[in-house]
Design a protein around this nucleic acid. Structure first.
Lengths: 158, 158
DNA sequence: CTTGACCTTCTACCTAAGTGGAAGGTGTAG
DNA sequence: CTACACCTTCCACTTAGGTAGAAGGTCAAG
């Protein structure tokens, strides 16, 4: 649980870069962003993140660019974008194109989808509430085939 | 695509039962309820449906009971219950217990869950709308690192 | 007899976004 | 030296609810 283990490799250059700039290994990067190191490897596997540089030992080494990229991925996720869409955005960016138009259309689709899901859930919610209200007025006495509650409600709907 | 293939086996008894009562094979049962026959086998595999009787050929034979049970399963699904919860209800019923209390508590949990999901989606929706509004006011000119749109929005939130 | 619809089983695959275990290498502290 | 945290890879598994393919059996009609 104690962080840091065996410390950061000594800085070689004459200047000491700020903490954010220092190369880090997967554990440090993961901890900064509150993600699982496995998740970072997963992102690399699905090509959201590029193949990182490696230490002679094989350890992955990350720099500020990777931190930014990963930060952007999580940001876009918070906006509800899926990893494949994020991948498209990143690929556009990597090719030097401005992805905003793509992002916009993705976002518009996402909005439609969210509206649809909310509407569905509202319907379900209404049914559930009706079910509970009905349960209150229904003292006890189950004559239904499986569950009077559900089946009665079904009849009401028709 | 043409229905019925080689017809219904001749009725053996002296009385002709109504259509709903006649034994049927998986295809007929599936078609009546608008489900895939594979789905019915799947339900059997996960023990939502009992092992059905079989013709000497091995074909599954279903009767009204199965139709009712399957109808109930789809009904409960429409109420947002998950298959494992439906399985519990069915198992209670099979043991002769009244599942309404169980159903109620399941439904209450489901309601909480639905409310939570709606709230989440509303938040996402708000963000998406804000994003689109911002996009309108933003003529063009991308100075952001990955996507000005998303990153600007992120700054607004803090 | 052939055709064709329907049925059987088995196994594997799908989405989405990861997580888990196992076996083994690395690097520093005590 | 050992201990220990951290790293590597590979492969499999998770959730939920199914769907798809392959190889083969059944049954009625033409």
């Amino acid at each position: 649980m104690s962080p840091g283990g065996h410390g950061v490799p000594s800085v070689r250059g004459g200047v000491t870069p700020p903490a954010a700039e220092r190369p880090m290994r997967i554990g440090q990067l993961a901890e900064r962003l509150g993600v699982n190191p496995r998740t970072i490897r997963y992102y690399e596997r699905i090509a959201l993140l590029p193949q990182p540089n490696r230490q002679p030992s094989g350890y992955r080494v990350y720099a500020k660019d990777d931190l930014d990229r990963l930060t952007f991925i999580r940001l876009a996720q918070r906006f509800g974008l899926r990893l494949d869409a994020i991948g498209e955005i990143l690929a556009l960016r990597d090719r030097g194109e401005r992805p905003c138009e793509y992002v916009l259309s993705t976002v518009r689709h996402e909005l439609d989808d969210v509206d649809r899901r909310i509407a569905e859930l509202e319907t379900v919610r209404t049914q559930l509430v009706a079910l509970l209200v009905h349960a209150d007025t229904l003292a006890s006495g189950d004559g239904g085939r499986y569950c009077e509650l559900l089946e009665h409600q079904d009849n009401e709907e028709k």
